[in-house]
Design a protein around this nucleic acid. Structure first.
Lengths: 281, 281
DNA sequence: TACAAAAAGTGGACTAGACCACTAGCTTTT
DNA sequence: AAAAGCTAGTGGTCTAGTCCACTTTTTGTA
């Protein structure tokens, strides 16, 4: 095993004494032995996922610093007693999450910054607020079954006039108005949605647990606007104050549209963050 | 080869006659033969990438419809004369791009909607406008070397007071003002940046070609605001009209911060779109 | 005919090797 | 002292299989 021979070699040797070729007295090596996770061979969780998780923990807690070398793929394969392809699958995940990066012909390294921003994700308002340590709540303004408007029908890939639920909620963060949200859901996908308590529970939780709808991805578009009088009244801001309007369409496992939503956030209390990655499209 | 036996079997047989077990007279099969790409075995582009591209074209042009079955992995491996692992690598990419999805024990299917929205990506303003069919241009307002403010130093991971370039540009779309952009770049990474023509060329192009800086990912946060008098004047809108403010930090290959930018868009002409995917973090 | 059991097919996981292009560090030559 | 060449190590790619859990289809039986 090898923690930092090439790049961090000088730095490490300065601190811990020579650690070329597995110096057993090196604190780093001992720490490695302690944090090494034994693989559960007869588990349902695949080996690559276990290795991925183990390495993730090592990066986070053991605190491998930025730029430090990672054990090579062949080394990792040997230590965990698996094939190199399995190790590569674990590393692929870590790379995708931005925790490591590879240099061909050189090695694998721990990324500089951990991505720890609270990005907008597939979860809804409730999940987002909880992640930020804020207590979310809702005030149900309206829940009725209507015929889809042209826009909604296009979003949800329905024929014009198909039945959809229209759900209008005022979203509160720590009791203060934060956003006004109008959601449209095809009635076909979630019959009798109105029997659930939508003020306490996360809509997405209900959809997942009770209607077996899994979110796969979402398309969002954001724009700035001036608050209308109604919106201003609901959010407790001045009319024509700036608001952030987010339009979102959520797609399920087979990429069928599940939800079309329109959320108006107070500009003074809300900011949306995203992480963009290199895409191959 | 098999195009849609299980799921779309009924539908296809109805139209083209039976196509179980490779019916040579089936138009679909003939079309497949025609569009089949022969792999360039001694090319630098890896086989999995070639297969991926070939399948991508088939999905797009041949127009395999949503929900139709895809050839099985074993079939694809045989047709292309490669190992199944290689096919899986190609399919992994397609899956990641949302073009196909898998059902364990059942098969691979073409996704419903193609993701064709013009998402915000790592490219800059110029690239984005070009993708939308709009001609971008810039008016250079300022380019000077300053000491990093606290905020900028934090974004760029520099010591307070380190030298950075401050670049202020008015961004035009088809000649009309669209956004006001202030960019900060560490002088260390791109010395003598001021010798390039920043009104004509894309900044990112210059950074890539001349300073060997490759973008890896970016973190963006968006908020709505009211235009200040200066901004309003520059953008040609009324003071306190709503604007969309985007703060962006771009990271390079080894995740070191490259650029910190602050862009103020006219709300009436600009909308930012994103695609969110399931993340495992 | 209805139903259960078996068979066939699928994607997911994994192995134990192989070759390649590339890089860094060392050695030798100039 | 500088340049050129060598070599070991790395990630990237690829093969030709295996076994598993799962679903759909077929088959055999009551």
């Amino acid at each position: 095993m090898n923690f930092g021979r090439r790049r961090a070699g000088n730095y490490l040797t300065r601190i811990y004494g020579t650690c070329y070729q597995c110096d057993w007295s090196s604190p780093l090596f001992i720490k490695y032995l302690m944090t090494r996770t034994t693989l559960r061979r007869n588990d349902t969780t695949p080996l690559h996922a276990q290795i991925c998780e183990a390495l993730r923990l090592q990066i986070k807690s053991t605190g491998l610093k930025a730029g430090e070398t990672f054990p090579s793929e062949r080394e990792l394969a040997e230590t965990y007693g698996v094939s190199r392809m399995t190790v590569r699958q674990a590393l692929r995940q870590l790379r995708q999450d931005g925790l490591i990066y590879n240099e061909r012909g050189v090695g694998t390294f721990v990324s500089g910054r951990k991505i720890d921003v609270h990005t907008r994700n597939l979860g809804g308002f409730s999940d987002e607020m909880i992640a930020l340590g804020i207590e979310p709540s809702s005030r149900l303004l309206q829940l009725k079954s209507i015929s889809a408007t042209e826009q909604v029908a296009r979003d949800l890939d329905l024929e014009a006039g198909a039945k959809v639920f229209q759900l209008e909620r005022l979203r509160l963060a720590d009791g203060e108005p934060m956003a006004l949200e109008t959601t449209y859901l095809p009635e076909e996908l979630c019959p009798k949605l109105d029997k659930w308590d939508l003020t306490e529970n996360s809509l997405y939780q209900i959809l997942t647990e009770n209607y077996n709808l899994q979110m796969n991805h979402a398309a969002e578009s954001l724009e700035a606007a001036a608050a209308t009088r109604f919106v201003a009244e609901q959010l407790g801001i001045k009319a024509s104050a700036p608001v952030l309007v987010v339009h979102r369409v959520v797609f399920g496992e087979s990429n069928q549209p599940i939800e079309s939503a329109h959320t108006t956030y107070r500009a003074d209390r809300y900011r949306a963050t995203f992480v963009l990655t290199k895409s191959s499209l």
